[in-house]
């Protein structure tokens, strides 16, 4: 029988296995040892590894990021958690001025093995300061690596890769992905940086999703079957470095690309991917989708217009393929559970 874990269970298992394997791995951040244990992702770690390796921190995001970098220089492999990605904005000085530059600025004498975990929020009135997804800011900075896994399988494999990597890694989780369940092998394995994943093959249009938008793209594919459109769904998995080749090969086949950013589209991942394809003279029709270019409102009636969703993606794809037909709306209602991605890998 397939071994099924949830997304947070996969992160927890990766962390525990690496902490068992390597005593230099430590984890700290606000709430890692509190009753909720970062939505279960640090459950049992304190009991197993003790308070020297698993500890709560003051609300000092900039200082604690610096502590992580300093500890890494001393030979540890720290994981620092941010229960809200928005809180990372308080740590930008250390992340960008120090972590990203320590190796290069000192001619390669250092390695800086830190993992910075960041959780994105959505819905239930999270609002302007609990819903941000600032990965484009980090994509703009040389010296950082960025993972955005969407499946439990990748959550575990990417976490193991991140911990073992000798460079600063921003590991981006999305709270709605925490409901995902899927096949996760018990053994240790790593998922590489710079390799996107084709989650579902298709020939008519390429849907590229980032983080939770991967799930929306998978739902959109189901909607599109109603009108005989066969979408290929790609999960970027890694944003820095980017795997352009996988997207390129897909678009060479479909000639149509929709990139759904889990962020504002201005100077976003979609902008970057599309630009690189254009620079490679790929002939294609393109659409970018992402957050409405305003802060996230809390009222559900407004919030529904803030995010892309499966229906909007499907409608956009239909319109791309049928520019002369009148607008189409999917009839079917799909729940999140129907799109649970189960692998196999």
């Amino acid at each position: 029988m397939e071994r099924i874990l949830s997304y947070p269970e996969a992160i927890r298992e990766a962390t525990e296995q690496e902490m068992l394997r390597d005593s230099s791995v430590v984890i700290f951040g606000q709430g890692v040892d509190d009753p909720k244990r970062i939505l279960g992702t640090t459950k049992g770690l304190l009991e197993r590894f003790g308070s020297e390796r698993v500890f709560d921190t003051p609300l000092s995001e900039d200082g604690i990021t610096g502590v992580a970098i300093g500890a890494a220089l001393a030979g540890l492999r720290p994981i620092n958690t941010h229960i809200r990605m928005d809180f990372m904005l308080l740590a930008m000085n250390q992340i960008i001025n120090m972590a990203a530059k320590m190796r290069y600025m000192f001619g390669g004498v250092y390695r800086v093995p830190i993992v910075i975990r960041a959780l994105i929020g959505k819905s239930w009135g999270q609002g302007a300061q609990h819903s941000q997804s600032i990965y484009p800011l980090f994509m703009n900075i040389p010296g950082l690596k960025i993972f955005v896994p969407s499946t439990p399988y990748d959550a575990k494999g990417c976490m193991i890769t991140s911990i073992r990597d000798d460079n600063p890694v921003i590991f981006i989780e999305h709270r709605l992905l925490y409901y995902q369940k899927g096949y996760v092998p018990e053994k240790s394995y790593s998922v590489p940086f710079g390799k996107a994943r084709i989650l579902d093959k298709g020939k008519d249009v390429t849907l590229v999703g980032i983080s939770q938008m991967v799930i929306e793209c998978l739902r959109a594919k189901k909607y599109l079957q109603e009108v005989n459109i066969d979408a290929e769904v790609i999960d970027m998995v890694s944003l820095s470095p980017l795997d352009i080749d996988t997207v390129k090969n897909s678009v060479m086949k479909t000639e149509k690309l929709i990139i759904v950013d889990n962020a504002w589209t201005v100077c976003g991942a979609g902008s970057e991917i599309i630009t690189r394809l254009i620079e490679m003279d790929v002939k294609m029709q393109v659409r970018r989708m992402g957050f409405a270019f305003v802060p996230c409102p809390t009222a559900p009636a407004l919030e529904q217009h803030f995010y892309p969703d499966a229906k909007k993606i499907a409608m956009n794809a239909f319109n791309m393929l049928n520019p002369n037909k009148k607008e189409w709306q999917p009839n079917l209602e799909l729940s999140i559970e129907e799109i649970e991605f189960k692998g196999p890998f």
Binding site: V26, E52, D62, G63, I64, T65, G66, V67, A68, I69, G70, A71, A72, L73, A74, G75, L76, P78, N93, Q94, N97, M98
Partner: peptide, 21 residues
């Protein structure tokens, strides 16, 4: 470092590492 104050938390983190080891 050329950004005022930035090496202070690094030094604290390094001390944490020394204590741990």
């Amino acid at each position: 470092s050329a950004i005022v104050g930035t090496t202070i938390p690094l030094s604290v983190g390094y001390a944490l590492g020394l204590k741990y080891k």
